[in-house]
């Protein structure tokens, strides 16, 4: 075979490669040229017809052709790939605004979310977090808390009674007695949970709601300590420095007892609809633990003192999310719950 023939095969092969417009045409060309029966592959077979002396040169020449074709193929491939990349980069039909497809996720109840956040705050401040019984006895719910039988304060606690004269706790305060009887003073503890009041339900009243009670027992506890603790605690809860005020409030298990108001966070105390134009929002009840309560729990009031507070978790949740109907909290409606993902 003449050199000119080889050149012919070569230029035909390169033309075929260059003519390929996409990867599949290129693959076809590759098979047609370099496959078992490809025109370029078949060139090697011609070597038998070449005189032995010239075989070396012929072989080299054939290899050159092969090499040129392989290079051409590689080059063509790179070109195609580059064109494809450029085309993808230039493509403006890809829609990034299509909605996300989420993994199937559930939700945590808003009350759990708020409660957990409060618990975290208290844990960070060195409090125990405890959980006490919901069916209680009269002693823990009333008597030990300085609310003897026929005390008018029992009116504030319309009570659910069981047939066997137990009751559903009307507040989380029985936890005070249980905590004092089990924890080694000094200590600080909070106990959130469900409480029950015998009253009809409407948008702002529920017979079942949630409270969070707090208790600190130490050797010397004053109103000044309580004031400071409430200020720190409420600032932590709301994540901003707050102004609070204490004013007289009546709870039989504390003496003195206080209502603790927070300066309205909406108007900063100037007065608005939320604070009913008073500049203050009533937030929790608190006070120094009544000596009778310390005694009921087995602590000597001359040795130990304490403060306690109780706040309405359900109410806090409603405030936080602007929920206008308390019945949603215990309502189990997915249309409500899904809003708190």
């Amino acid at each position: 075979m003449e050199q000119s023939q080889l050149e012919e095969v070569k230029s035909a092969a390169l033309a075929q490669v260059m003519a390929a417009e996409d990867e599949s045409a290129l693959r076809d060309a590759e098979v047609a040229l370099l496959g078992k029966k490809g025109t370029v592959s078949l060139l090697s077979r011609g070597i038998s017809q070449v005189p032995p002396k010239e075989r070396g040169a012929f072989g080299r020449a054939v290899n050159d052709v092969k090499k040129a074709v392989v290079e051409a193929l590689t080059h063509a491939r790179e070109g195609l790939r580059e064109a494809a990349i450029q085309s993808e980069l230039d493509d403006r039909s890809f829609d990034v605004t299509l909605p996300g497809i989420r993994p199937t996720g559930g939700t945590m109840h808003p009350l759990s979310q708020v409660q957990e956040r409060l618990e975290e705050t208290f844990i960070a401040m060195g409090y125990h977090v405890l959980d006490y019984l919901e069916v209680e006895d009269e002693f823990h719910n009333f008597e030990a808390l300085n609310i003897p039988a026929d005390h008018p304060a029992r009116d504030m606690h319309d009570t659910f009674w069981t047939k066997d004269r137990l009751l559903l706790r009307t507040h989380t305060s029985p936890g005070q007695i249980r905590a004092m009887r089990t924890l080694e003073p000094p200590f600080r503890a909070v106990f959130p949970g469900k409480v029950f009041r015998y009253e009809a339900i409407d948008a702002s009243h529920e017979h079942t709601f949630h409270q969070l009670e707090g208790l600190m027992i130490d050797r010397h506890v004053s109103v000044a300590h309580l004031n400071s603790s409430m200020q720190i605690m409420l600032s932590q809860i709301f994540g901003q420095e707050l102004t609070i005020r204490l004013r007289p409030g009546y709870f039989p298990f504390v003496e003195p007892g206080f209502e603790c108001d927070v300066q309205c966070m909406i108007c900063g105390g100037a007065g608005c609809r939320v604070c009913k134009h008073s500049g203050w929002v009533e937030f929790l009840g608190c006070g120094l633990v009544h000596p009778n309560v310390l005694r009921s729990a087995g602590l000597d009031p001359d040795e130990w003192q304490g403060w306690a507070f109780g706040l309405g978790l359900s109410r806090l949740v409603m405030m936080q999310y602007g929920i206008d109907d308390i019945r949603h909290i215990m309502g189990g409606d997915l249309r409500f719950l899904r809003q708190f993902a």
């Binding site: 844990i123 004031n227 204490l246 004013r247 007289p248």
Partner: peptide, 24 residues
């Protein structure tokens, strides 16, 4: 206390309980 006015009682941080709390 109430007639002194509770707002006239400056807050005072309680002494720190130097004891690691048990994790709940």
């Amino acid at each position: 206390g109430r007639l002194v006015g509770y707002s006239n009682i400056p807050p005072q941080a309680p002494s720190v309980v130097v004891k690691a709390p048990e994790l709940p």
